[in-house]
Amino acid sequence: MKFAVPVFPGSNCDHDMVNALRDILKADADLVPATTTDLSAYDAVILPGGFSYGDYLRSGAIARFAPVMTAVQAFAGAGKPVMGICNGFQILTEAGLLPGALQANRSSKFICKTSELIVKNNQTQFSSAYAENAHINLPIAHGEGNYYCDDATLAELRANQQIIFEYADNPNGSTANIAGVMNRQGNVLGMMPHPERAVETILGSTDGLGIFQSLLANQQEVAHA
């Protein structure tokens, strides 16, 4: 399984992501520039965290029009797995690949700490390695991670089990404690917490491994089917 990690001007979690994929999970992963227009060599795309284009205008608002995003739209449209972490999540909502939006934290502070999450849906290709309702610890680091959607969208997210991760102790004011959501088709996931920063004991937690292990295991199943 080969991962593409698009690098936008201002991305800063791209190398952490590639480190997690290559060095810890022994998977193939390439950093690809935001000008890339062809992702046909890859099996999954992970949009990394950071401050793409300086977060000018709004987080993710400029990045969503980078050339690589046309390819990501097509990639997602073909049913292939796409994941966005932190700024990557913001880009996916701006691009309309995920519902809702990320607004400023309720406290108006940038929050950088470990947060406890609950795995609400483990029947997905991103979360099958976790037990249902498992409590996991992942770092968060954001100023605009307060997930917002209107009531109709929330009802849809709940009806279709698109809420994958919830905060145990809502740190930022997110609607319905939402930390990570998936699209209806089940191939696009966005989350504010950073699984790539929780892949080694020395980092304080290995709870992030499950997401990547889920993806790798499900891809193998597809390959052998």
Binding site: Q103, A104, R106, S108, N146, Y148, D150, G173
Partner: peptide, 8 residues
């Protein structure tokens, strides 16, 4: 319905 912490 949206927070405006900067305005506040």
């Amino acid at each position: 319905s949206i927070l405006d912490p900067k305005g506040e």
